[in-house]
């Protein structure tokens, strides 16, 4: 039995290949960020497939946003933690 619909991995690979012109015109540092952004959707392939969208790249963008949100959340936690440590150090210093 042959699949009639291309696999999601293949569709995403094709979309990324289609973005090569965009990537090429970016600065090297931005190219690395773009690569990381695209790669961050890959752990969510099963969820993107389950979205059953005609254009799965939309769901892939959502997966990238999800990973960005996770990173923001982690950084916020870290900032909060560092702020608490600074406050503690300041209190110790002042006291």
């Amino acid at each position: 039995m042959g699949r009639t619909v291309p696999t999601l991995t293949r569709q995403l690979n094709e979309t990324e290949a289609a973005l090569q012109g965009f990537r090429r015109a970016l600065r090297r540092s931005d190219q690395l960020l773009l690569d990381a952004l695209l790669a961050s959707a890959r752990p969510h392939l099963a969820a993107i497939t389950a979205s059953e969208m005609l254009l799965p790249f939309e769901a892939a963008l959502l997966a990238m946003l999800l990973e960005q949100s996770r990173r923001v959340m982690l950084l916020e936690q870290e900032v909060q933690h560092l702020q608490q440590e600074i406050a503690l150090l300041r209190r110790n210093h002042e006291g």
């Binding site: 699949r3 009639t4 392939l45 099963a46 059953e52 005609l54």
Partner: peptide, 17 residues
Amino acid sequence: LSDLIRADRGGMIYQPL
């Protein structure tokens, strides 16, 4: 086409952590 996209899929395969 949308029915085909919905139906023509295999088993659930996750990407592990």
